[in-house]
Design a protein around this nucleic acid. Structure first.
Lengths: 180, 180
DNA sequence: TACTGTAGAGAACGCGCGTTCTCGACACCA
DNA sequence: TGGTGTCGAGAACGCGCGTTCTCTACAGTA
């Protein structure tokens, strides 16, 4: 496994688990086994490491969702079932992008932009998901985005994993109205 | 104005604006004009200052919402109108409790607990709001909570202030079904 | 065998943090 | 007036941060 991957693996685990500022660069070095010098060759600053961590997580997170949803016929409910599985994973601590935005968004434009890109991509995915059967895919997609965001936040802060099921029920109501 | 208030005013402005870890205790001292010695008399540690900031913000935030909603007949839509006004305030940067949870929740039990208490109180308020006309107030209240959370997150990260209006539209659909 | 370049380990640097300590100024009472 | 306690201003402390530098080891080449 190359250095970059080892660094991103360690960074993702530590940053998501404890928050970005709570984890020093030296701890990422220790956890990855990559020498500090190489760390700074791959990522010339901590901020670039953080952005790279977020970008890779974005790709993987959306790919996992899309793959899981594509296997089912009832695709919109499948989104919320996938969420519930995620919530129940040990170490779940909410949305990495929301957390990073709250922690660093005011300080780092790059982090704020990366978080926004993730949410925009998720919105785009949901709109595409209902295109074809929804009268107004943009409208329905954005409504679903609200439910997804709400479920993630409630699951994280309140520890309410049932939020996914509740969000799915609301989604099904909207779906029925939209003719899905 | 007493020292405690001056400290909490400065802390709230700085912590919300930039994040908790990004603001040093000394900056709170400078912004408040309160000597460091007194700061540590009022709040023996930074963590206690952070929790006090969150608790006061919780009270004020919910009081402002409740007061604004109580003045209207269509109370549920009023919640989302209040949200939209909040989103459009200069310096809006999402939910202080979600932000603090993401930044410090893993490190500080007190902060995680305070954030959870805020969200639980909001849920309780929303359930009470629909009690009386909803067939299942708990269910509808929780659904509204999802929409509120989703709108706040979308407004913060995506800068989508229209999320409040969209959430209100979904809420009105749920309301009509629940017999409101 | 000598020379060169690269790599790893970790020391060093400058800074800012949360917290505590020092010291001089000043009010209050005998 | 002299003694006592309180207060504010800010220096000091120990630590951990992000980042850079130094030193040693060694592979590849002539």
């Amino acid at each position: 496994m190359d250095h970059r991957t080892r660094l991103l693996d360690a960074a993702e685990r530590l940053f998501y688990e404890r928050g970005v500022r709570a984890v020093g660069v030296d701890e990422v070095r220790a956890a990855s086994g990559v020498p500090l010098k190489r760390l700074y060759q791959c990522f010339p600053s901590k901020e670039e490491l953080v952005v790279a961590y977020l970008r890779r997580r974005d790709q993987r997170w959306r790919a996992s969702l899309a793959e899981s949803v594509a296997r089912r016929d009832d695709r919109v409910p499948a989104v919320f079932d996938w969420l519930e599985n995620w919530f129940r994973e040990p170490g779940f601590r909410g949305c990495a992008f929301v957390n990073s935005f709250g922690e660093l968004g005011a300080t780092s434009d790059a982090v704020a932009r990366t978080a926004k890109e993730h949410k925009d991509a998720l919105r785009h995915y949901l709109v595409d998901l209902v295109r074809g059967f929804a009268a107004d895919p943009e409208e329905l997609g954005e409504q679903l985005l609200l439910l997804v965001e709400g479920a993630i936040t409630s699951a994280a802060v309140r520890g309410d994993f049932g939020a996914a099921r509740r969000a799915r029920e609301v989604a099904e109501i909207l779906l029925a109205r939209a003719g899905g």
